[in-house]
Simulated scan of single mutants.
Amino acid sequence: MTLFRPCIDLHQGKVKQIVGGSLNDTGAKENFISDYDAAYYASLYREHGLTGGHVIALGKDKENKLEALSALRAYPNGLQYGGGVTKKNAAEYLEAGASHVIVTSYLFEDGEFSWDRLDHIKRETGTDRLVLDLSCRRVGESWFIATDRWQTVTSTEVNHENLTELANHCDEFLIHAADVEGLQAGIDEKLVMLLGQGCPIDVTYAGGARSLNDLKRVHELSNGLVDLTIGSALDIFGGKGVSLEECISWNSGQ
């Protein structure tokens, strides 16, 4: 059954919601900047029993790391962590309280997927605490994994064959549709359908969700096999499309 998965996105040491495709070295187009810190949101999710969410650090700012660590301490084993994860620091985040670490860019060298790097990080995490972030951009009628804050499109396609193979090496997938991330213009329905048909493990989709109806739509398109993260449209992030209370009620009914 499709579930709502919560998120905490960190940029420049603040909890924010941004337009994903705008993220670069100089900044990003911002939809929302919170007055609350990451630990506040982690505690909120813990209070309401929301599981399987993630805290993502967008950028290597020291403040991002401090905020992420505070969120993990506030909700031990309740959040996944992603952002600059490598074989050298994966264990640090797991020991700090992350249920899983989320990895993308580290797995690529010169735009090519590295099986050696995947093996290296699996030795630190095991498959049961590893999430592969296959966030992607659309190229024609296909989707290709995008790294380096979604600015570099790799040669690795998000398709049935690759999803099936990579599923043997991790516990879950996290997939942002970078082209629609933060736009609140609707989900990428074709991508959700592909994920519903081709993922043998748990997968969370993010990008474009704008209302409670999107939870229903993802459920329909994926036969309940894909979960959904809602960011900019959510009331706790300044959105007007859907409330956290509605998402909690949705999960309770599944």
Rank of each mutant, 00 (worst) to 15 (best):
T2P: 12
F4M: 08
R5H: 11
D9Q: 03
I18A: 02
I18P: 01
G20Y: 03
D25A: 15
A28R: 12
A28T: 10
K29G: 10
E30I: 15
Y36V: 02
D37H: 13
D37M: 06
D37Y: 05
A39G: 00
S43D: 13
H48G: 05
G49H: 02
G52S: 09
D61G: 13
S70E: 13
R73V: 11
R73N: 09
Y75G: 02
G78F: 09
Q80G: 05
Y81N: 04
V85K: 07
T86Q: 04
K88Q: 09
E95R: 10
G97T: 07
S99A: 15
V101I: 12
S105M: 09
Y106A: 13
G111C: 05
W115R: 03
L118F: 00
D119G: 03
I121R: 00
K122Y: 00
E124Q: 14
T127A: 13
R129D: 09
R129V: 07
L130F: 05
V131G: 00
L134Q: 01
R138I: 03
E141Q: 12
S142F: 01
A146K: 05
T147W: 04
T152S: 12
T154A: 01
H160Q: 09
H160E: 09
H160V: 03
L163A: 13
E172F: 05
L174D: 01
D179W: 02
L183H: 06
A185E: 14
L191T: 02
G196Y: 12
D202R: 15
Y205V: 14
D214R: 10
V218I: 14
L221Y: 09
N223F: 11
G224Q: 11
V226K: 04
T229E: 11
L234S: 12
I236G: 02
F237D: 07
F237R: 04
G241E: 07
G241N: 02
G241M: 08
G241S: 07
S249I: 03
